[in-house]
Structures are given as C-alpha cells and as structure tokens.
Simulated scan of single mutants.
Amino acid sequence: MPIGVIGIGPALPIIDSEPAERADAARNRKLLLDAAAELVRTGGADALTMDAVAKQAGVGKGTVFRRFGNRAGLMYALLDESDRKLQAAYMFGPPPLGPGAPPLERLCAYGRARLAFTEIEGDVRRAATDNSSHYGGAPYNLTKTHVSILLRQAGTPGDIALLADALLAPLGAALVLHQIRRLGFTLEQVGDNWEALVRRIVPATDARHPDDNRTVE
C-alpha cells in the first residue's frame, strides 16, 4: 500500500521505486551516481560525460552505458536520486524539514533544502527540465503536493494549487543560478527572500501542533 502523509489534502505518494537490485548492482549504481555528482559539483553539467563518469568511478565506459543508456539517462538518474533524497528528508527526516514542526516552519525549511540541492545539481536540473513537460512529471507534482498540503495545514487562503506553483517558481534551478552567478546574490539571500515571501502568503498565526503530520502505511 502506498505510503502517504496524513493531512489536509491528498496523500503524498513516494516516487515509484525501481525493481529490487542485486547488492552488487546497487553498489555499482551508487558508485556511478556518486561519481557523477562529484563531477557536477566541481565542473558543472558540462563536465558530466559518460567518459568522465567512467574515469571518476574507475570503471569501463561500457559499464556506464549499460547502466544508463546515454548521457540523458545519466542526467535523469542523477536528478531522480536527488529527488528521492529530498523527499525522504521531508517525509521521514527530523523537523523542521520533516514531520514534527508547524506547517509554516516546514514550508520554510523545505525551500532552503531545495535551494541547497539546486546549488549542487542546478546545472543538471536546468538542462534536463527546461521544458513545459517538467510540470506534468512525477517529481514536480510530488513537490507541489507536499507544498500544497503544508499550505492547507497552515490555513492559507486562496487557490492552493496556484499558490503552490507560485512558491515553487522562485526555486527553479535556472532562476536561482542566474541570481547567484549573474546577479551576485548568495544562496542564503535567495533563501531569506523565499522565506519572506512564504511568510507574507501564509497566515501569521500558526500555533497548531502538527499532530496530522504523521506517516502511515
């Protein structure tokens, strides 16, 4: 049975997991994705090639191709891994990002966590999701559902679906990287501005204890 977060609004599903892997296959996948992430951290998305990942991981290039098919497959696998880590953090991790804090505080923590992931993998996310189909995909809609649930729990008035989109737009990788690299803002400044926006939209009085933020199978 799918796992969801109990709250106002739809349950939050987990991204469908891949078929069970052998232990050695899972280790190889992690090795390759860790190598890919390190290349992005040090050289941006342009450094993410099949040859470079193979060299960084210490394996043959054929291993990378067999695992991911091509560079696009590698990029999406890296983004999927990033989405899974962030989702696990806000569904099962400690507060304020995870359950146990008031909705407003969780929403602010989510924005800052999302920005931290963007700083590391923003080039890849921008290259892989710079099209309208991104908004119909599972990762974006899982994120939108999470934000919508927190907005409803905090008693936010208005059209929640539109508000969720409006709050997620400033966290988009392309815009954040432009603000940091071209305009000279720091990631902390971007996060402070996003939190100020959230606090203007969400009602100021939010003293409810988040008893409905439990997770259930």
Results as ranks from 00 to 15, higher is better:
Arg114Phe: 02
Ala154Arg: 00
Glu195Gly: 05
Asp212Lys: 05
Glu18Lys: 00
Ala26Gln: 06
Ile8Val: 11
Gly93Asp: 02
Ala154Ser: 06
Pro95Gly: 00
Asp34Tyr: 11
Leu168Pro: 00
Gly155Gln: 13
Phe92Trp: 08
Leu79Lys: 03
Ala116Trp: 06
Ile14Trp: 04
Thr63Asp: 13
Glu188Phe: 06
Arg208Phe: 07
Tyr90Asp: 00
Leu163Thr: 12
Leu171Cys: 10
Leu177Met: 15
Arg208Thr: 11
Val124Leu: 02
His134Tyr: 07
Ala116Asp: 14
Gln56Asp: 10
Glu119Asn: 08
Gly69Lys: 10
Asn28Trp: 03
Gly155Glu: 15
Leu171Tyr: 02
Thr143Glu: 10
Glu119Met: 12
His146Lys: 01
Leu171Gly: 07
Phe185Val: 01
Ala196Arg: 12
Pro19Gln: 01
Val124Pro: 05
Ala154Asn: 03
Asn213Gly: 15
Ile15Met: 03
Pro13Met: 04
Glu195Val: 15
Asp192Gly: 06
Arg152Trp: 00
Arg41Pro: 05
Phe117Asn: 13
Leu162Phe: 00
Ala52Asp: 09
Thr63Gln: 15
Arg181Phe: 11
Arg112Tyr: 08
Glu81Cys: 09
Asn213Cys: 03
Ala11Thr: 08
Met1Ala: 13
Leu150Gln: 01
Lys55Tyr: 07
Ala35Met: 09
Thr215Glu: 07
Leu104Phe: 03
Asn70Tyr: 07
Thr205Asn: 12
Leu163Arg: 12
Gly191Ser: 15
Asn70Val: 00
Pro94Ala: 15
Ala166Asp: 14
Pro103Trp: 14
Asn131Arg: 11
Asp192His: 10
His134Asp: 06
Lys144Cys: 02
Asp212Val: 01
Asn70His: 15
Arg208His: 12
Pro19Ala: 01
Leu31Cys: 09
Asp16Thr: 06
Gln87His: 10
Arg84Phe: 13
Lys85Gly: 04
Leu107Ser: 04
Leu32Ile: 07
Val147Gly: 01
Arg41Tyr: 05
Glu105Tyr: 07
Asp51Phe: 11
Asp46Phe: 04
Pro99Ser: 02
Ala113Val: 00
Gly43His: 13
Val176Thr: 14
Gly44Lys: 12
Glu81Arg: 15
Ile149His: 03
Pro203Gly: 12
Ala36Cys: 10
Phe117Glu: 15
Leu162Val: 03
Tyr135Pro: 03
Val64Gly: 14
Leu167Thr: 07
Glu121Ala: 08
Trp194Thr: 04
Val198Phe: 05
Leu167Cys: 11
Thr49Leu: 04
Met1Asn: 09
Ala166Asn: 13
Gln179Trp: 04
Asp123Tyr: 11
Ser148Trp: 02
Arg84Gln: 12
Arg112Ile: 05
Leu175Ser: 13
Gly60Trp: 05
Gln87Thr: 06
Gln56Met: 13
Gly43Arg: 06
Thr156Asp: 14
Tyr140Gln: 00
Ile160Lys: 01
Arg152Cys: 01
Glu38Thr: 11
Arg27Asp: 14
Glu105Asp: 15
Glu81Phe: 06
Glu105Pro: 06
Ala45Met: 07
Thr186Asp: 10
Thr186Gln: 05
Ile180His: 14
Ala23Val: 12
Leu79His: 04
Ala11Val: 08
Phe65Ile: 12
Leu167His: 06
Arg182Met: 02
Leu168Gly: 04
Gly58Phe: 00
Ser17Glu: 15
Pro139Asp: 05
Leu97Arg: 09
Asp212Ser: 09
Ala116His: 10
